[in-house]
Design a protein around this nucleic acid. Sequence first.
DNA 1: CTGAAAGCGCTTACAG
DNA 2: CTGAAAGCGCTTACAG
Lengths: 347, 347
Amino acid sequence: MPNVTITSLAQQLGISKASVSYALNGRSGVSDETRERVLALAAELGWYPSSSARALSHSRSETIGIVLLRDPAHVGSEPFYMSVLAGIEAVLGERDQNLMLRIVAPDAAAERRDLAVYRRWVGEGRVDGVLLFDETSNDPRCQLLGDLGLPFVLVGGTRAPAAKSAATAVDQSADAATVVEALHERGHRRIAYISGLPTLGHERARSAAVVEHAESLGISAVVTASDYTAADGEMATIALMAGLDPASKDFPTALFYGNDLMAVGGLAGLKKVGISVPEQVSVVSWDDSIMCEFSSPPVAALNRDIGELGRQSAMLLLDIIQGHQRENVSMPAGVLRLRTSLGVART
Amino acid sequence: MPNVTITSLAQQLGISKASVSYALNGRSGVSDETRERVLALAAELGWYPSSSARALSHSRSETIGIVLLRDPAHVGSEPFYMSVLAGIEAVLGERDQNLMLRIVAPDAAAERRDLAVYRRWVGEGRVDGVLLFDETSNDPRCQLLGDLGLPFVLVGGTRAPAAKSAATAVDQSADAATVVEALHERGHRRIAYISGLPTLGHERARSAAVVEHAESLGISAVVTASDYTAADGEMATIALMAGLDPASKDFPTALFYGNDLMAVGGLAGLKKVGISVPEQVSVVSWDDSIMCEFSSPPVAALNRDIGELGRQSAMLLLDIIQGHQRENVSMPAGVLRLRTSLGVART
DNA sequence: CTGAAAGCGCTTACAG
DNA sequence: CTGAAAGCGCTTACAG
């Protein structure tokens, strides 16, 4: 059985392809009667427009792309991506748009292998726009996509550096303030921030904001860099705390981690060096997840609506693709979920 | 600047489109000299084949599809999907194939909304084949895809019910035996299996296998159904254990959970009802993940190579799409990672 | 309101 | 080895 096309519909109805096309696309140029006959037959025969033919005609793929530059071995343990994908998908599904996903492992030589994917996608006409994660300072993708003229949105980014682009902006400073103030209120006077990858733009913003808010409250803050993995969070914690005398002025009474994995790794590290949570040290995570809820003790965390971040980002991108000028969208601030790991500083 | 196409290349070189096409596709019909001139110019101008034009010509989209029928709110907490996606992507990336992803929330009315997506994808010619997750008994997708003639692979499935399909088969029985024997060796004589969604084919196979192996070793096993979430794992555990006298014959000394989330939820439940792990009860998880490593106590788990499952599934599907007849592929058995939660039964 | 025609960028027999 | 031509399934001015 040959595939049903507008040509076959036109033949069976004894009218031209153009009329069928107009009818199917809800455009003027056909009588109501003809339109209904066309729609009825199309429904009966289960006609679908060929995506490739349609894309070829008006250079739109109805598809947006995402390239994740992450180690495949670790990407599974980060709930963030799957959650944001689910939010993105909710919007795309409603609007009959599609998602093309590529996960590429970062090169040992730190070559940006994702850039080649964008070039290719543009050349092949595969996607109408892309969503960018993990913005770095002076992100090379912005330059490239700007040159290529491909619309993009920086998810949880900070700026919109080019035409046909925007960001779903997360106010890292406000979130930092929430946590630092919560610690200050509970008597903490020396805190440490264990950051994620310091090459990421948002991570720099976070580190700076933590220090700044601490200073403005008259408490001291140190920053140490880690890499978002539980294993390194554990190591960084041990390196930071091992050998410190709890009575000394250098002993931080609160550890703030850049994500949930590092926080949970940190708990393991603290246990190894014999520091009890929250009696001797409080622990807070920037990202909330099921791991924080079910760790022992449960970890206080900034809860943000990741699904909503995905939804807003997708809507923003689709708008830009349709030619609308759009400003950055501000995402709501995180809410600190109080859990056992956050306690009062012992004096 | 107009896009570079084979027509523009042909014009600049003063030859026909056909020659350009043959040269670019490495087919005979052009002299080596012409071929080199074409390739050189194409590289210089950054030519890429239009994916839509190519798809329109030979009805291949170079894209495989995945529809995840999962609650968006929960999909983020399951490391499984992201891990398997990473494995799939590794294969697709190497072979210049693309992945189209759709996440659809299960309907309250339990209508299979994913079926409409497959119909649409086939009608539009968007994908050349699909990967199926979470096979159910008498899975309606197999019937539909068989009728539509779309190649598919059941990831971690059991059978290959139609032409143009196969499964990456996981031997649930062997994995069940590994755990049941490990428990038996440590003196456990009464165990409970807290299963995931019992509608899933592999979950039925697991429950049956646990009971069967227990019986063959002369120990008793009960099965209780949960739904893969930590919250329900906790509730199911409390329902199972609350009020049971540790000295009674009905008290299971080992709890085996269908995934890592339920196991961690189970730890929380056991703590609430005052049962200590592993002193009074041992805990084992069917899936391993970072949650098992960093929970308190760490949970013994069957470690399987999820990335490899994704890789094998993708390779199998690509082969079938290319018209090869393929048998099911057997995945390696899981390896039990011994951790603190698994101890010797107290007699 | 309707139809014949050209075009999107490729591929692929078919003549020369 | 090379070129002219038809076709994939749509869209869209342009005549009637």
